[in-house]
Amino acid sequence: MALLAALAAGGLLFLFPFYYTIVGSLQLEPNADISGAFPSPGNFSLENYAAINEALNLGRTLLNSGIFTAGVIIATLALGLLAGYALAQLDFRGRGVIFNAMLLVLIVPFQLLMIPLYVMIVRYYGLADNYLGMILPFAVNPTAVFIFRQFFKQIPVDLFDAARIDGASEFQVLRRVAIPIATPAIITAIIVTFIGPWNEFLWPFLITKEQSLQPLAVALANYISNVAARAANPFGAILAGATVLAVPAVVLFVATQRWFVQAQLGSSVKG
């Protein structure tokens, strides 16, 4: 019982900042006193959402976040399914090398590559302020490739051999047999991949100077560091923007957490 109470207290402490974000985003006058931690109908307003929408153009920045995220998910599925299937079910020279390289990149921190990637993408290819430049370094989520490989590994070869005997090419086997049975792995990969680009700050921040191309995380961060000082209720507007940024990821997680937690585990422990 004491354990349950301690867990509950800890859980509430963990969730309090989220609750407080929503409460604060709905206050007309910022109230940082203890009384401000409780919703008060007299101080309620959607003004902060209007203010942050005016400053950041939420529709546009959300669209940018969406394009960035969708681009990464599509590339991850396309290249990842091909590679995951081949690594699990096909026998070819170089398979071991590619698989080991794949495990290795799981531990290379992005920040180490930040300067050379910036040189390549901005200077060599001229892809600053461009969706392609934003997507490229994140295009394939190695964790997702790993999920696909693990999934196809546990499918018996006979299933694919049957199609091969019928004269299907390897690509047809992938498209007609492998991908249709891989739905659970695909869903898991989408969920795990989603939070990467959606929450990413550093890379899109480095390469987008034009606000009309910035994902919401970058636009909100710039608002926090530059504009907030001049706004009427800076914290209210920041919290409204934070709510809009956090809701899609949190909702997706809560709705699909069974898949999510298992996938995170599978890739980190076995990896």
Partner: peptide, 30 residues
């Protein structure tokens, strides 16, 4: 519920949660 509660900060963008930390720990914050 507890597993979810402890996991939510991990899936939320740093930029989003930094906003509320700035407010919580500001000079006149909660």
């Amino acid at each position: 519920f507890f597993r979810t509660a402890y996991y939510i900060p991990y899936v939320t963008a740093s930029v989003a949660v930094i906003g509320v930390w700035l407010w919580l720990f500001s000079d006149t914050g909660l």
